[in-house]
Design a protein around this nucleic acid. Structure first.
Length: 88
DNA sequence: AATGAGGCCCTAA
DNA sequence: ATTAGGGCCTCAT
């Protein structure tokens, strides 16, 4: 556990609250935090956190147009996880 | 409808 | 303190 800012902490809280079978866009998360213009920072936070944050379903966070976006562990893995969860 | 360019926010070096 | 980068978004062509 490294030093995390309040912003990242907020991101984690929101992303963690994402129920299974549902996905949220970076912008949506940013809006929940209170900074709808910080969608880039959200992705960045998840990106670095995904390395040691396994309790956060960052793969459930996709782009506004439905595109998977990106994934630190591999975009393929993200798509696979999404298909596995969205199947319900 | 698809592609190109610009802009905002955060973190690390 | 400043610069560059990033899992983006939106507007214009």
């Amino acid at each position: 556990m490294k030093h995390v800012t309040k912003f990242q902490n907020k991101v984690y809280e929101i992303v963690k609250k994402i129920p299974r079978g549902k996905v949220m866009s970076y912008k949506e998360v940013a809006e929940k935090i209170g900074k709808p213009r910080a969608y880039r920072a959200v992705g960045n936070a998840l990106n670095k956190s995904a390395s040691w944050r396994t309790d956060i379903p960052c793969h459930r966070v996709v782009r506004s147009d439905g595109s998977p976006g990106g994934y630190r562990k591999g975009i393929k893995k993200k798509v696979k996880l999404l298909k596995n969860e969205k199947v319900f």
